[in-house]
Design a protein around this nucleic acid. Structure first.
Lengths: 351, 351
DNA sequence: CTCAAAATGAGTTGCGTACCTCAAAACACC
DNA sequence: GGTGTTTTGAGGTACGCAACTCATTTTGAG
């Protein structure tokens, strides 16, 4: 009736006794310090395995004395998503303080590879771990690899550099996010046929390109009645996005769906509502976008927007900290916990 | 350019010095032990506030010596959702062991108030915290309150007892979940009009009743073209659910949507596919259900099911442990982190 | 003013690990 | 067999706090 998990009350002393060595030797093995015969190492390792020994994390943390420092390297400039991440880090401050963790956010031009790479390189000696919103560029990759070689733990945040040796990526699969957006636009259009517009920041951004790729995949395969128009590049700016979309809506009377890949949501929404008021007879355009912000929340409630694909920024911030901490401590990572889900947010499940 | 969070390197000794008292007095104040004049308490508290002092959790944990024990009281019998929760607790075993946390799952007939209440009462002295899948019944509420009075931390899991004095509820808002299901059925039906069926375990279960309530709310308010049929009570059994639904589908040719509130998914899916093959000409019935299991995953991929409303069982298990731990330590709870979201899972964002 | 009770100071011990030193033992090599 | 090197043991200190004891001071009631 009762099923028990865990109970390791063993200490290093017990392991030492079982392996027939002294505490000092166990310590040497545990921290890969030199001066232990291979055979002895094996004996100690076996004793550890046999008892499923887990160092007491509290004792270890207390003994090392030195506080750990993590850096979050994020885009400068006003980006609501990044601001949310910063805000959630702030909410963790008591949690962080109780563990003597120092977290600093460092604003940088993440779109300039040289600047970003230089920022990263400068961190090597001062931080135990770095979370970075990374541009996928050879120079950035090299900087990340250098950090890893220096013993710093590195996590990519939101945007990955898969070819680097970063320890972990905290973010979503953007192709799957695009596919999800496609399925939503298609299904919510409810059998109508017509054209579908895409507004993106730039197709040069890896995450945007991947989302568009996934979106087109689904549209082509499953919604033959819908044809996708060429991508509008709004540079994540409200005005530009709005103007481009207004022009497009004027040229095509049969647009039934819209996928807004990045920011610029304000402009996109304006363009849509302008059209709606100029011609009240037409069916509403299905509008799917990304991220839950104050604006998208309002648009969802008003019914202007039909769904938002979201990656929970709070979860990302906390996951990044937890992963860095686990890496620094040599603890295993709870993969399932740290995996960022693709959330579909509609009016009734707004968080 | 760099924004720093946290850095409290103060210790109790510093607080004692600032307050002009000894370590012992600070300790008395911190742990609400008697024998300190109110005025002195105030001085100490002020020093703590002023410095935003946070006890070092590692040191505190180490010093108290005693390991903490938590109990998870869950339904006996084969319930895939509960099995998933248990599985995720198992995956945490290394994490738990490193913190000297003992977690035990206790199977009980949670549907019998007396049995459940007795199970709970028996736990008071042995556990520091209890997570319970609770039936909302006066006797259960009393048992929970007794536990709380005895100093045990109590968290309700999946199903809440709002009138009790439990410290926290880990689970979703089932009314909002039902609303979300309603919006999905309505929107995915794409303007068709007709009837909508509901299959539930029992309307006596609080969570099922709340979901149905939310579902009906949305249907009535927003989809006048859809009329909801009386609820079928399948008792979460495959066969019964399937039979009831088959009969209903036979009586009403114009059913366009189906909401499966609880389990019995296998039977529901069978009834749907039987109808589909017997009359290929008809439009597919929009099928929305709950939870991501091996079965619902397959149905989503096959297109039989259109969406699943899900509460991440892994998240619930971990959140329950974290909340109990924070409560036991007297740490603040990260509300945002522990809040369980209502996930909409469709084919392309399957986790 | 006296005496008991309350409040406080001073101190100790121990938690389990990291990190360090120094000496002793085991070993390899010539 | 002696040398130098590698490996190991023994032990200590420190980390910040919980929990405790005991002596001393302060307080309030009579």
């Amino acid at each position: 009736m009762a099923d028990t998990l865990t109970a390791s009350a063993l200490t290093l002393k017990d392991i030492a006794r079982q392996a027939g060595v002294s505490l000092a030797t166990v310590d040497r093995v545990l921290h890969n310090r030199p001066g232990v015969r291979p055979d002895t190492v094996r004996r100690v390792r076996e004793a550890i395995e046999r008892n499923a020994f887990q160092p007491h994390v509290a004792a270890a943390e207390l003994a090392r004395g030195r506080a750990r420092r993590f850096a979050f390297v994020m885009p400068s400039g006003p980006n609501p998503f990044m601001q949310q991440i910063e805000a959630y880090l702030g909410e963790m401050s008591a949690w962080l303080a109780a563990r003597r963790l120092g977290v600093e956010t460092i604003a940088t031009d993440v779109f300039d590879p040289s600047v970003l790479a230089a920022s990263l390189t400068a961190l090597a000696d001062d931080y135990d771990g770095v979370a970075v919103v990374a541009l996928d560029h050879p120079r950035v990759r090299a900087a990340i690899d250098d950090l890893v070689d220096a013993g710093t733990k590195v996590v990519t945040l939101v945007s990955d550099v898969p070819s680097s040796r970063r320890h972990h990526y905290v973010g979503i699969d953007n192709i799957a996010a695009g596919r999800t957006a496609g399925a939503l636009v298609g299904r919510l259009a409810g059998g109508r046929s017509g054209k579908v517009a895409i507004v993106a920041g730039s197709q040069g951004l890896r995450d945007h390109a991947e989302r568009i790729f996934g979106f087109n995949q689904v549209m082509a395969a499953e919604f033959p009645g819908l044809s996708v128009l060429p991508v509008l590049e709004g540079r994540d700016e409200d005005e530009r996005s709005g103007q481009l979309l207004t022009r497009l809506l004027g040229r095509h009377v049969d647009i039934v769906g819209l996928y807004n890949v990045g920011a610029g949501t304000q402009g996109v929404a304006k363009a849509l509502s302008d059209r709606a008021s100029s011609d009240a007879g037409r069916d509403k355009v299905v509008f799917v976008g990304h991220d839950v912000t104050a604006l998208t929340r309002r648009l969802l409630l008003q019914g202007v927007m039909d769904a938002a694909i979201s990656q929970n920024p709070g979860h990302e911030a906390r996951a990044a900290v937890r992963v860095l901490l686990a890496l620094a401590r040599g603890e295993p990572i709870l993969r399932e916990q740290e995996k960022i889900r693709i959330d579909i947010v509609m009016r009734d499940n707004l968080p």
